[in-house]
């Protein structure tokens, strides 16, 4: 499957607060929803900050939209939401709309107002500092979806949202991709992939500032297989598995599909793993190595 990249990153390095971001090469595919998965402190926010243009101290090259050089065009076409509040605290929701109008040419006030109503943000004169985290995230989302953009960078958008709104967010992302017909892309970060699994096309798993696994979800589900077996076989099975867990009823772990024949002779059951299981197993593996 050949896909174009909407963002290409080469040799990204950044040292920050006793932690190092180190990515030799990473591409975000165009026309899909990509999930950036990792624990807290894995470097997801740092990477998104760099891509959103709010942090400029890093080494390396980033190419947007097929080598677009005009900073204005890049920023105008990217919508970014932060995991924390990034508005001035004394702003009201109305002020957010007014500010967005001044800051971005392709912002549509009517669309913003409609989104606010649809998302249940009534009371345009509510101050940002008085809003709950969920309401504030909805405001940030309303502001970015009210613009005509080609890419969305969302830093942990699901975290402060209730399950109903998370589902709504997934729908909004799908609609965005559909509108773009292959030209629009979404990159979002999450530390809880289960909620966003059914909208994720491409997954990037990060640990300690590095990308440890990436791929289209369907491909990852073929690359790995979930193996369940008897405790008696633990010694033979453990080295073949990632994210090994054991209980009184047996063991469970993730195995590379190509290694499956090494289980010959052992009593096992296999199934296709969910993205959540893949992520957890891989993240566990790297946490262990850290000792």
């Amino acid at each position: 499957m050949t896909t174009e990249a909407i963002i290409t990153m080469t040799d990204i390095q950044k040292k920050f607060k006793g932690f190092q971001l180190d990515i030799p090469f990473l591409q975000i595919p165009k026309g899909f929803a990509t999930a950036l998965i990792g624990e807290n402190g894995a470097g997801k926010s740092t990477l998104l900050n760099i891509l959103a243009g709010i942090r400029l101290d890093y080494k390396g090259n980033i190419s947007f939209f097929d080598g677009e050089k005009d900073e204005y065009k890049i920023r105008e076409n990217i919508g970014y939401t932060s995991s924390t509040n990034y508005f001035l605290p004394h702003w009201t929701i109305k002020a957010v709309g007014e500010a967005s109008e001044l800051l971005f040419d392709q912002f549509h006030m009517e669309r913003f107002r409609k989104l606010c109503t649809d998302l249940g943000l009534d009371g345009e004169s509510k101050k940002i500092s008085n809003l709950s985290d969920g309401m504030r995230m909805k405001t940030e989302l309303a502001a970015v979806f009210a613009r005509d953009t080609r890419a969305l960078l969302l830093d942990e958008p699901a975290s402060p949202l209730d399950p109903l709104m998370r589902d709504r967010l997934c729908t909004m992302i799908r609609e965005y991709l559909d509108e773009g017909n292959g030209e629009k892309s979404v990159l979002f970060s999450t530390h809880n992939i289960a909620d966003m699994e059914n909208v994720t096309d491409y997954a990037i798993i990060m640990e300690q500032g590095k990308v440890v696994e990436e791929g289209f979800v369907e491909d990852l589900k073929e690359k790995y297989v979930l193996v369940k077996g008897e405790n008696a076989d633990e010694a033979a099975a453990k080295p073949l598995l990632i994210g090994f867990t054991k209980s009184n009823y047996g063991y469970e772990g993730l195995c590379l599909s190509e290694n499956l024949d090494k289980f010959a002779g052992m009593d096992i059951a296999t199934e296709a793993p969910t993205l959540s299981q893949i992520s957890v197993a891989i993240m566990k593996q790297y946490t262990q190595l850290r000792g």
Binding site: A52, I54, R75, S82, T84, N85, L88, A99, L102, L103
Partner: peptide, 16 residues
């Protein structure tokens, strides 16, 4: 402070 972060996402932020 991250009060200015939204402004920083646009090239028009600091001029504003």
């Amino acid at each position: 402070t991250n009060k200015l972060e939204y402004l920083k996402t646009s090239v028009k932020g600091i001029p504003l």
